[in-house]
Write a protein that binds this DNA or RNA. Structure first.
Ligand SMILES: [Mn+2]
Ligand SMILES: [Mn+2]
Ligand SMILES: [Mn+2]
Ligand SMILES: [Mn+2]
Lengths: 217, 217
DNA sequence: ATTATAATTTAGGCAAATCTAAAAATATGT
DNA sequence: ACATATTTTTAGATTTGCCTAAATTATAAT
């Protein structure tokens, strides 16, 4: 598996969560920051390698082998993110880019020893679950802030967007994993939401509301 | 700098130590396990990027920029080797291959934090010096076992060949960094050498004698 | 000083991953 | 149902790093 193939597998995996059907060429191209024609080429290559099934014009779906491989790359990515934060003083907005490269180093001993060194972490710095050596992980029960109910209290347990910009925004508003958030008001006009965080009130936009994962407490 | 370019720069750097003159195309091709025509192509590319100077038919020489870059990659390589041995339970014969990949991840923060996390090590697991953040490192005073003098006592401080086969051979003969070795006899017939190591005597071949670095004690 | 040998470069091609532009298939709206 | 819009695929190029085979240059031997 080449570096590009691994990145495409991961992208297809993530997109399958959203669009339950086959992953469309356009969606894949957008996720990979390439053109649709490039996505088509790669999907055909992955199909030849039995990593995806591809019905022309109907999108791509991961095979068992493809999903297993994607989970393996995701395991590496998230373990390296933990390493960077826990051991090398990276903040959660700095790890993604570097992990994007580290995830492609293919050595079982490396990954499994890293896992042990980190004492088998279950979540990465963004609240995402880390698959174990056999690819198993618990799916996290979570709702998006946009769908939280007024008057209830939630705990922040994850983010969808892991861009540096979004994470720095959260930092500057004292929002992180574990932060307790009470929903005060939802503004129908622009879908913004007023929150209470540690006795102070803030209003967040719709794009924030769609990228923050919560759990009822 | 691409991955291939970085590997070529490192190879040229290492070959410059031996052949003080320009590095020949054939030597470079052999080091890189490619063909001479490929080496020529890459040398021309590196020359365009001002990383080497290339006089056709006369070999390649690193420029200041090229040497600095090579040292940077070597720093990364050796730091990761220390990490693998010190933190992830790798043995000295397992680290090279993985470090060969890790060395290409280009993040100053990553490398400098790793350096600090490892408490600024000076030598890698094979006794090679680790350049600091500014590319400075002490050259190690060392002689090759083949040139050691009969009757004198030495300390093993490095290896030239870092292949798994050679390092495992050393392990099985209780030779490692720091091992004290007395030269008992040099056999002119096949250039083998009889050594005393911790009260036991062993005979090593010429190829071993050319790959072990010693320091008089 | 030629000639033979060895080293190096050039020429032409290939596979991976990308692109633009054009063609084909699917989806949508009235 | 059919024209239009959108999505997807194909066709043809490009770049990187590698190859083989052939031509060129340098080195060694007589
Ligand atoms: Mn990646
Ligand atoms: Mn993450
Ligand atoms: Mn390398
Ligand atoms: Mn080493």
């Amino acid at each position: 598996m080449t570096l590009a193939e691994e990145n495409y597998l991961k992208a297809i995996y993530h997109l399958e969560q959203q669009f339950k059907k086959g992953v469309s060429t356009n969606a894949l191209a957008e996720e990979m920051n390439t053109k649709a024609s490039s996505a088509t080429d790669m999907v055909k290559k992955l199909a030849e390698k039995k990593m995806v099934t591809h019905v022309p014009y109907q999108g791509a779906t991961l095979s068992k082998a493809g999903r297993d491989y994607a989970v393996k790359v995701i395991r590496r990515h998230r373990l390296w993110e933990v390493f960077l934060v826990e051991k090398l003083n990276f903040s959660w907005d700095e790890v993604h880019e570097v992990a994007e490269h580290l995830e492609h180093i293919n050595s079982d001993k490396l990954v499994n020893e890293l896992d042990a060194f980190l004492e088998f972490p279950i979540y990465d710095p963004h609240g995402d679950p880390i698959p174990d050596k056999d690819g198993n992980f618990k799916t996290v029960e979570k709702i998006i802030l946009a769908k939280a109910e007024i008057g209830f209290t939630y705990k922040c347990i994850g983010v969808d967007d892991t861009s540096s910009e979004f994470l720095k925004y959260l930092d500057s508003n004292s929002i992180g994993l574990g932060t307790i958030i009470k929903i005060l008001h939802k503004e129908p006009f622009d879908n913004s939401i007023k929150l209470e965080i540690e006795d102070s009130e803030i209003v967040v936009s719709q794009s924030v509301a769609k990228n923050l994962y919560l759990k009822k407490v």
